[in-house]
Design a protein around this nucleic acid. Sequence first.
DNA 1: GGAGTTCTTGACCGTACAGTCCACTATAGG
DNA 2: CCTATAGTGGACTGTACGGTCAAGAACTCC
Lengths: 212, 212
Amino acid sequence: MVDRAVKNLYSVRMARPRSFDEKQVLNAVRDRFWDAGYAGTSLEDLMRISGLGKGSLYAAFGDKRQLFLRALRSYTDESHGHLRKALTETPRALDALRMLLKAPIDDPTDADTRRGCLMANSTCELGNADPEVLDHAHRTYETSTALIGDCVARAQREGDLPAGEDPIALARALLAAQQGLVFMSRTGLDAAALTATARSLADRLLPDHSGD
Amino acid sequence: MVDRAVKNLYSVRMARPRSFDEKQVLNAVRDRFWDAGYAGTSLEDLMRISGLGKGSLYAAFGDKRQLFLRALRSYTDESHGHLRKALTETPRALDALRMLLKAPIDDPTDADTRRGCLMANSTCELGNADPEVLDHAHRTYETSTALIGDCVARAQREGDLPAGEDPIALARALLAAQQGLVFMSRTGLDAAALTATARSLADRLLPDHSGD
DNA sequence: GGAGTTCTTGACCGTACAGTCCACTATAGG
DNA sequence: CCTATAGTGGACTGTACGGTCAAGAACTCC
């Protein structure tokens, strides 16, 4: 993959250029895996959705599994980008942490709410069978924990959370609560109950200490 | 299925009896689906594991999907049995609720810890594609919520939880936290972090009010 | 023991799938 | 314009899968 990109950039002889945008294809493919799962997505689906022939897909990405892993990595990278941005750019850290629990729910289009998190779905479907997926999941959630932990520490510095506690411990609790919420939303729990649960969890895990 | 059972019980003419125990087969099949997922389990796997031929499987349970649904229902029924027992037979309701968050973790054999919850896995793999699975998930978690809610109400009556709050709301928060924990354990989070997170969630969601 | 019925076994079938391959096309450099 | 090279599309393949079926085994009842 990398070899080919380098070759494209530096080789003396250029030839026929790609007729597709790799990122667009990856996004389309990612959406399909997200909706239908890994096993539930056939190569024909991928061809139809990407508009590419089999040969092009295989030449560009390798086999189905590699394509899936690429899409998955792109998904987690993007998610972490958003997460990092949300956690660092929100003026008050405590608000950012609260958003962690509320954001997955109040999506107006419930499509995103109902299909859950691609990484979580993939872990459930393939975690036992594919060590690479499991390992990626592990590292992904470690990174998320670290990001959230930083934000917890900031909230402590800002005086909104008690300073004594381990930021990573609270980060893990928040992450678990968030994953649980996203999962409950997948089961078809109605929006009202969902937001109430999110609020309940937020109130208990992130009590406002600014008045203390 | 039912017709045949009834016929077996009441028909005048009995014929060749089953050479297998339906429950045993269902348990073996359930374990396989649990480990490998629905798509990851082939009929050949099911035959090897159950010791039955294809014909017997199909005659007894219908096709692969129906067999899966049977196994899934048997799993949730059994789980609810254990849950009900644990929640009602524990002397102090608050302890039972705490166990909710601790039990999924401290399983000595990490096999059970790593493969998570069959219902959750199935929802993630098939929820978008199979409405029946989604519906079953929905009803399952509604039942769980009700059971936990009853136990919350008992804890309130026993003076261990503040009486003003909605038992169902807290039950949903506990369920979400538990599902989140089970999922985190699937990703390979180490046992120490896991138990710490469980304890952290329990402390925050179920503070001891007996001294109040 | 014969008749009737259910269960079991495994061969068989159609198909849908992932993956391969090759002829063809479009482009860049000379 | 010619050649070299990379990209494209689709025909092709092997196979593993879910599902069917029929012949025979095991059992009950009369």
